[in-house]
C-alpha cells in the first residue's frame, strides 16, 4: 500500500458563516468515517489560519523567527488528510469525494515518498 497526502487549498480571508460551514464539516466527518471503515484513513487535521503561522530558519545555530506563513498567496493550506491507497486511481477517487464535499476548493493529491 502507498500513502498519499490530500491537501485542501482555500482562499485567504474569513471562512464561510457557520450555517454554511456546519453542514460541510458534517459531511467531511462522514467522509472521514467512511475512509476509516475502508481502512484508507491514516490521519487528518484542519489548520488555524496562516496569520497564526511562524517560520523558523537557522542562522549560524540560532533560530530566526518570522511572523506569518512561509509563502504569501491568495490561497493557503487549510487542512490535510493522509490516506492509504493501492494506487493513484484509488487515491484520486477519495480525493474526488473530498473535492465534492468541499467544492469549489481544490484538493492536491500527492504521493508520500
Amino acid at each position: 500500500m502507498r500513502q498519499y497526502l490530500l491537501s485542501v487549498y482555500q482562499p485567504d480571508g474569513d471562512p464561510p458563516p457557520p450555517e454554511v460551514l456546519g453542514p460541510i464539516m458534517a459531511e467531511l466527518g462522514n467522509l472521514n468515517e467512511e475512509m476509516q471503515a475502508a481502512g484508507a484513513w491514516v490521519f487528518a487535521a484542519g489548520l488555524h489560519p496562516p496569520s497564526t503561522a511562524t517560520v523558523v530558519r537557522d542562522k549560524d545555530g540560532d533560530a530566526v523567527l518570522t511572523d506569518g506563513p512561509f509563502t504569501e498567496g491568495k490561497e493557503h493550506l487549510g487542512g490535510f488528510t493522509i490516506i492509504r491507497a493501492s494506487d493513484l486511481d484509488e487515491a484520486l477517487s477519495w480525493g474526488g469525494r473530498m473535492a465534492a464535499v468541499l467544492a469549489p476548493l481544490a484538493i492536491e493529491v500527492r504521493p508520500i515518498a
Binding site: 494506487d87 493513484l88 486511481d89
Partner: peptide, 14 residues
C-alpha cells in the same frame, strides 16, 4: 512510478 499510476485497464465505471 512515484505517484503509483496503475498499470491496468480501468474499472468499468471509469
Amino acid at each position: 512510478r512515484d505517484a503509483g499510476i496503475p498499470y491496468r485497464v480501468p474499472r468499468d465505471e471509469d
